[in-house]
Simulated assay, not measured.
Amino acid sequence: MDAGELLAERDHVLVALDGPVAEGLSAHRVADRLRALVAEDRLPRGVARTTDPFAVLAHAAAIGPATERAVHAQWRRVEHEVVAGARVAPGVREAFAALVARGVRLTVVGVLDVEVVRAFLVLHGLDAHVRRLVGRVRSDRAAPDLVASAVHAGAVPVRSCAFVGGTDADLAAARAAGVDAFRHRGAAAPEPVTGADAWFGALSATRPTWPRIRG
């Protein structure tokens, strides 16, 4: 069976935003942008050198709630800039429509603020196919386990779920959650493949066998 048929046998498919849905997401130097809001004080060495925005947010929270709110608001502004420059992955609209037509529930999982993820989906007409969104929320002061959260939110047995991700970290999180996974390799530019075939064709199973779920 091809990737589309394998995914269509699952009740719940989790899809990472970065790569499988949005290409060109570049969040480099986000920590630098956030650090500028707290740079008037002498920063601890770890905060001064970190590339982790959560570390800067934690330092801002230690300063006070107003500083924490300002840093979080800046983080969201930076992420809106990032998604504004991102591209829709080839064939993702058609692939989502095909999966939903087969009765599959779709959840998009992103490390960005959940409202930023929603904005990208709405902007590109993908929101009609997506049942749930899982992303960072304002109460998060550390990086959440988003894949596990998405599985739990879907209220579907793990064996009935599949995950599509584009990074090693995404796929490791899926394995930790006990979810079978596909790696999205990105578009193969020389191949004249369009529509859902372009998206499904960019997927490869990360495990040698996939059990059939539906009869």
Rank of each mutant, 00 (worst) to 15 (best):
D41F: 15
H59Q: 05
G46K: 08
V38G: 04
A58T: 14
E40H: 14
A62Q: 12
V30H: 02
D52R: 02
V38K: 03
P44E: 01
R33A: 07
V47K: 01
R49W: 10
D41C: 14
V47I: 13
P53K: 00
A55P: 09
R49N: 09
E40Q: 13
D41K: 14
V56F: 09
V47N: 03
R35S: 11
R35H: 08
A62Y: 07
P53S: 04
R35P: 10
L34G: 06
E40C: 12
A60C: 09
H59P: 01
P53C: 02
H59A: 06
H59Y: 13
A31T: 03
V56S: 07
A31F: 02
F54N: 13
E40A: 12
G46T: 11
T51D: 01
A36R: 11
E40N: 13
A60N: 08
V56R: 05
D52F: 03
A58S: 15
A31G: 06
E40S: 14
G46D: 06
A60Q: 08
L37R: 03
R49D: 07
G64K: 14
R42N: 05
D41E: 15
D41H: 14
R49H: 12
G64I: 13
L37Y: 01
T51G: 03
A39G: 04
A62H: 14
V38R: 06
R33Q: 06
P44L: 05
T50Y: 00
R45Q: 04
D52M: 08
L43S: 10
A39P: 00
A58I: 13
T50S: 05
A39F: 03
A36E: 02
I63W: 08
A61I: 12
A61R: 12
T50G: 00
T51R: 06
D52W: 07
R49L: 13
A61T: 11
A48M: 15
A48R: 15
A31V: 04
D41T: 15
A60M: 09
A61K: 11
A48F: 14
R35Y: 07
P44Y: 01
R35N: 08
A58E: 15
R49C: 07
A55S: 11
D41Q: 15
R42A: 14
A62V: 12
V56Y: 05
A48N: 14
L43T: 09
A61Q: 10
P53Q: 02
A55E: 14
A31W: 01
A48D: 12
A36V: 07
I63Y: 09
A55C: 11
H59C: 02
R49E: 10
L57P: 00
L37V: 06
